[in-house]
Design a protein around this nucleic acid. Structure first.
Lengths: 214, 214, 214, 214
DNA sequence: GATGAATGAGCCTTCATTCAT
DNA sequence: GATGAATGAAGGCTCATTCAT
């Protein structure tokens, strides 16, 4: 588990000339996320990442060796963070499928996950993913685990509610609605609020499983 | 309306060395779409576009002046093409809202629109969108028109069916499910078939408007 | 066969903004030879080569793609030039072995071959040869042909003169004396003149084949 | 005289973390020689030298201040080592010139001197020599002493044998044949054995001074 | 219209050097 | 003595753009 952002910033704010290896790496990954969001994939340069982190560009490569590795590790970190976020939410929620689905959806709109910087960085990676298999590999497995979990929950809900909807299809609809509202928050000229995004997803859940939601 | 692809090829075959202005421009836009899909936004270079089009790179800038303009016009073309596609479909469909919605959805999965190259190019633009407001402006209006049209149809369906769902929300759900299945076809490691994508969208429509679909 | 240096320079001195492909390439190879001699292998940079040629560094890579290829082609050119120099000398000389050996040795000290720039460049390549097999490959074959030719001549001289010396050993001695005086001209603080170098080699020939020389 | 390698290693094994000044310096010079031979002049970096010596790169500059000084001192050490090697050999040999020459030649092919690492390092220095006058100065004096000594021996041999050869020329021939066989052992694709090299040099001596050798 | 030589800004990367610990 | 984080100059390379032909 990565160090708490708060801790990282606290250490970083002490701003000594030299930092421990892990603190610097985490700091640089956060700077990379911010830069990806602010400038997009194509214009994310090491110089810009370094400037964002307030250090020299040489130090970035001292810690990550190549730009490629910096980007890969950034994606790995975000994937891991996202994965742990929803797994923790599931673990903390009651065992019944409706509560699990609610927890999963809420987790996906948790403020630590839907940071503008993180949404922007995800968007940048998606844009490149099609042409760079390396990025697909980094999160393919984790994505599959998420999808499978969502399907299991939906299957249980369908069983409980006797719904006519195909659980696999319902799971897919829920997933793409979550993704889609994320994209809307990133790309629309006048995006709606995160609460509106959450309401949209919950409406979808209610359409799929009316006895459990609303 | 852009010239028919067939016409473009015919003209191109007539005289490969010197082409009319419009034919060359269209040829280069198609090459740009292919290159964006094949290499992503960050690695799309003028040289690569020129190679795909089978001409020298100098000629690309002769026709488009800057790379920026080439990309902008490519996006404008795709937006226009997409726009005309669904408008033509609506015009050809019966006037009742269920038929209109069906036409709209089918149009979005028409083979000319869901070309791998076009899907890839859209994906590349989305990934960089947040850092390039100019591109948002290029398709913002058209997007808004699409959304408004979808909302109007949904409002009519809700009125007809007396559904409890909010028409605006339903329209948004349908739109993001369409977008989401597009993304799935682009980025999943083992993507499902276009027919499966269409089935997913139609299931969503059935959930929203059960008396009209299924 | 590469264009005559004189022709190359003449064309270069016209100094048009754009040059034909072959002229530029030859000009850049000469600039590389000069730079290698002046600064050594380690400090030969593309920028320096470009400056020597009076063009931008980008153009160097436009014509040679990579620094590695520029260096390889430079070595190939020098090898070829050297090879053709002694082969032409042999062809122009009488058929008897003493005349052939004399021609070979004189060819190796011809002014076009023992340019300070060329000697320096050879020295730079030799210094790196041990750690870069690619350079050995470039001239290994040609070297072998030279050695074999020298051995053939020495064998004939030994046969004619009934000398006790081993022809293979004599050929090797002659070769390293030629190489060694080259090195002396490059590396000594107070190097002797080329005529003195030639005299040294001829003395070696006289020691090996006293009835034929002196 | 530098410490015996055995002693160096013994001290090194005693306490790898903190070493006496001289031991560390000697250890680093040996590492520099190995690195020069393995990677060539251009690619010899402080990090690589440090890695070969098994210490951090910071420590290299702690002991030598600059890379330039490390290389200069390495060259000085090799020059000194070479110088003492042939001087010791001369001192141990009988006083007559034939024995002295034999001792000198054998010294130049002593196994401690013709280490692959040392041959490679010499080669690397030669290749860059012309661009680095400082290195010429480092070994110019010693070289001159060697040449002078060789000339003195040759003059005496010529006097004794009444040979027609110029002693200065003979000395030069012998020197470049020694150097040349060194180069052969370094750069040929299929180099001959050191014994063959020695045989070549002795043949040269026999050609120059037939009454004294063979 | 079309080609391709030429330029130069800006990128990633290497590496000698400095310095806090 | 020793380590390794940090800096910045400089190198190779890419690529948008200009321009002579």
């Amino acid at each position: 588990m990565p160090p708490e952002p708060a801790t990282v910033l606290a250490e970083a704010n002490r701003s000594p000339r030299t930092q421990s290896r892990e603190v610097r790496r985490q700091q640089l990954i956060e700077a990379t996320i911010s830069t990806l969001a602010a400038r997009g994939f194509a214009r994310t340069t090491l110089t810009e990442v370094a400037k964002t982190a307030g250090i020299s560009h040489g130090l970035v490569l001292f810690h990550f060796e190549t730009k490629e590795k910096l980007l890969t590790e950034t994606l790995t970190f975000m994937t891991e963070e996202y994965h742990q976020n929803w797994q923790a939410a599931l673990a903390a929620a009651p065992a019944d499928p409706a509560a699990q689905l609610l927890a999963l959806i809420k987790a996906d709109f948790a403020s630590a996950i839907t940071t503008p910087a993180r949404l922007g960085a995800w968007c940048a990676f998606w844009g490149e993913a099609q042409s760079r298999p390396i990025y697909q590999e980094a999160c393919g497995e984790k994505d599959a685990a998420y999808i499978r979990q969502l399907e299991v929950i939906c299957e249980e809900l369908v069983r409980q509610g006797g719904y006519g909807v195909d659980a696999i299809i319902a799971a897919r609809i829920l997933r793409v609605v979550i993704e889609g509202t994320w994209l809307d928050m990133m790309t629309m000229q006048n995006p709606y609020a995160p609460t509106e995004a959450l309401r949209t997803v919950m409406s979808t859940a209610a359409l799929c499983f009316p006895k459990h939601f609303r």
